[in-house]
Simulated assay, not measured.
Amino acid sequence: MEIDDEAAVRLRAVRKVYGAGLAAVTALDEVSVDFAAGTFTALMGPSGSGKSTLLQCAAGLDRPTSGEVLLGGTRLGELDETRLTLLRRDRIGFVFQAFNLLPFLDAESNVALPLLLAGRRPRRAETTAMLAAVGLTDRAGHRPGQLSGGQQQRVAIARALVTRPQVLFADEPTGNLDSATGRGVLTLLRSLVDERGQTIVMVTHDPVAASCADRVVFLRDGRPVGELAGPTPQAVAERMTALETAP
């Protein structure tokens, strides 16, 4: 069932509990948050705050124990595993800390992979356009081992974008990169929002990375505990320090 909804992603009273009885751990505790279309949101919080679990539930990678998640107007909880898999394939893009490129395929073939898995014959124009979007037109024939870490992450981003997803979810996308290379990837993500209207939700621990977003949502103990619009690295760092030192 679909409903009209201006938010790209919406979580309502989402609760996620792992285990049962005395061993139960509440990773998300009645979380309600919206991610507007065409915006860049960073999720931050101390270790164990639930930010990665929130990302996984929002992206349909994990099902909440209770509450609901909506992608556009689609209620993910109403989808069986087959339909949920198709939705993730067609409407969601993923970028992780590990690039997860196939080492025996060149950049262009890695980008084309989601289309092949969807049973489509990739058009050269599609893959070329995606590599151009991430500034790697001249690296189309290079395998991952012939690319720098930053270039590999750009290929991973192009691969995530080739299906033209409604939302791009990124989990520590600069975690394996040096600071200069990481800045280049963050500049690319920012440009995707500003120039293409892409919706991005990113988990990060880095105040500099978070400052590239339109807003930062802070979590602690599985609950949102505040937001920061128009973030600066200093403001983000100060908020994180307060969260980590609060009793």
Rank of each mutant, 00 (worst) to 15 (best):
F40K: 03
T41M: 08
A42Y: 07
L43T: 08
L43P: 04
L43M: 08
L43W: 07
M44A: 13
P46E: 04
G48S: 04
S49Y: 11
K51G: 01
K51V: 02
S52N: 04
T53M: 10
T53G: 12
T53V: 07
L54Q: 08
L54M: 15
L55A: 03
A58V: 10
A58Y: 10
A59L: 11
G60C: 11
L61Y: 07
L61N: 04
D62N: 14
D62R: 15
R63S: 14
P64M: 05
P64C: 09
P64Y: 06
P64K: 06
T65P: 10
G67V: 11
E68R: 15
E68L: 13
V69E: 07
V69T: 11
L70A: 09
L71E: 07
G72K: 09
L76A: 01
L76R: 06
L76V: 05
L76C: 00
L76S: 05
G77S: 00
G77L: 07
D80F: 13
D80Y: 12
E81T: 14
T82P: 12
R83I: 09
R83W: 11
L87D: 10
R88A: 00
R88Q: 10
I92C: 00
I92Y: 01
I92G: 02
F94G: 09
V95F: 03
F96D: 03
Q97T: 07
Q97D: 02
A98Q: 15
F99H: 11
N100Y: 15
N100M: 13
N100A: 15
L101P: 04
L101R: 06
F104I: 14
L105H: 00
D106N: 02
D106A: 01
A107K: 06
A107C: 12
A107W: 04
E108K: 05
E108T: 07
E108I: 02
S109Q: 12
S109L: 10
S109H: 05
N110P: 07
N110Q: 10
V111R: 06
V111W: 01
V111T: 04
V111C: 03
A112R: 02
A112Q: 03
L113W: 01
P114T: 05
L115N: 06
L115Q: 10
L116V: 14
L116D: 08
L117C: 13
L117Q: 14
G119Q: 11
R121A: 15
R121V: 14
R121T: 15
R123Y: 08
R124D: 11
E126N: 14
E126G: 13
E126Q: 15
T127A: 00
T127C: 10
T128G: 04
A129L: 03
M130I: 05
L131Y: 03
L131F: 09
A132C: 06
A132V: 01
A132W: 04
A132M: 01
G135D: 03
L136Q: 02
L136D: 03
T137P: 00
D138A: 12
D138H: 08
D138C: 04
D138Q: 12
R139I: 02
A140R: 13
G141V: 00
G141I: 01
H142A: 11
H142I: 02
H142C: 06
H142T: 05
P144T: 01
P144F: 00
P144Q: 09
P144L: 03
G145N: 06
L147V: 02
L147Y: 02
L147N: 03
L147W: 01
